[in-house]
């Protein structure tokens, strides 16, 4: 080997030409920021968020127009809206957690990997190399941020509309006691955060589906079917044994936050369920993405 031919490309390599030593955290943040820009500047996702912001407005206006027809069978929080606009945010969240919010999360998370694969940009990212585990971490983090943004947006717009259209004041809890407005708003914020964890669980399911196909529409549809099947099963009393294991079962179990004393059991069970869903489905996505042959 000592008489091997001179190889210019390998020989003329100054020691300083090593890949620049960039520490892990800033480089991860840079990739994450780039992913957030991709998600939040994408016209389709902006339209999705626009729809999510419009629905609370529409519901608020509809309430205002029909305020005198309080119905006995209305979902929780609906009949309180006329008395206190703060409750509009909770009423809207109950409505939107059944379909619109999961739909938005499924679209973004289902597209996360399959969309890159269908564009062919996945092979570009992996040959950079972005690192498969690192890519998945960035993708899921962006899904979590989108879930948080979607829930905060819905609750925020609903609060704004509620404040404008309805009287606002001390918040009367479900158990009849009254707390100051700030206390009530704080509880609403907690609910929004709780809902975003629930949506992140759906995001994990959709992300796992996204690693199994190169067709984003397929991944989105599969995740939505999963959500709807869960909601249907949750509505069938004969299946009550499996209810605690359904992804949608605890989405609305935050009403304990609006009682005195505060009942956290629903929220605790919910968080446990969401975290389990996230762990299991992110693990599935990881196992798939780190072993898959990228032929797209």
């Amino acid at each position: 080997m000592s008489a091997s031919p001179v190889v210019p490309a390998l020989r003329d390599r100054p020691a300083g030409r090593q890949p620049a030593p960039v520490s892990a955290v800033p480089s991860w943040l840079r990739f994450f920021t780039s992913e957030l820009r991709l998600v939040f500047y994408r016209p389709r996702n902006i339209a999705l968020l626009g729809v999510l912001a419009f629905i609370p407005l529409a519901i608020g206006v509809l309430f205002k127009l029909t305020v005198n027809n309080a119905a006995a069978g209305a979902p929780p929080f609906f009949n309180q809206v006329a008395g206190n606009g703060v409750f509009l945010s909770l009423a809207v969240l109950v409505l939107m957690l059944s379909l619109f919010l999961p739909l938005a999360i499924c679209v973004v998370a289902g597209d996360a990997v399959a969309g890159e694969a269908s564009h062919g940009t996945l092979r570009g990212l992996l040959t950079v190399p972005a690192g498969r585990t690192r890519l998945l971490a960035v993708k899921f983090s962006a899904v979590v941020v989108f879930a948080l943004a979607a829930c905060i947006l819905v609750v925020g717009v609903a609060l704004l509309v509620g404040v404008i259209l309805f009287p606002v004041g001390q918040v009367t809890l479900l158990s009849g006691t009254t707390v100051p407005l700030a206390d009530g708003l704080f509880r609403v914020l907690i609910v929004a955060l709780y809902a975003s964890v629930g949506m992140a669980a759906i995001g994990a399911v959709a992300l796992a589906a996204s690693t199994l196909t190169v067709h984003p529409v397929g991944a989105i549809a599969a995740a939505l079917v999963f959500v709807l099947a869960s909601e249907i099963a949750d509505a069938v009393p004969q299946l009550s044994a499996m209810h605690p294991f359904l992804v949608s079962h605890f989405w609305l179990s935050w009403d304990g936050l609006f009682r005195t004393p505060v009942d956290l059991s629903g929220v605790e069970h919910g968080l446990l369920s969401f975290v389990l869903y996230i762990v299991i489905f992110v693990a599935i996505a990881w196992a798939r993405l780190t072993s898959a042959d990228i032929t797209s």
């Binding site: 960039v22 800033p26 480089s27 990739f31 780039s34 062919g120 690192g131």
Partner: peptide, 30 residues
């Protein structure tokens, strides 16, 4: 590398697409 034809995000500009790939590179200097 260029594998099997060009593949980029259609709604991003050429420069933005390059920035995206550079951001994914943990050894690149921002």
């Amino acid at each position: 590398s260029l594998v099997e034809g060009p593949a980029f995000h259609p709604h991003l500009s050429g420069a933005e697409n390059l920035a995206r790939l550079d951001a994914a590179d943990r050894t690149a200097d921002r």
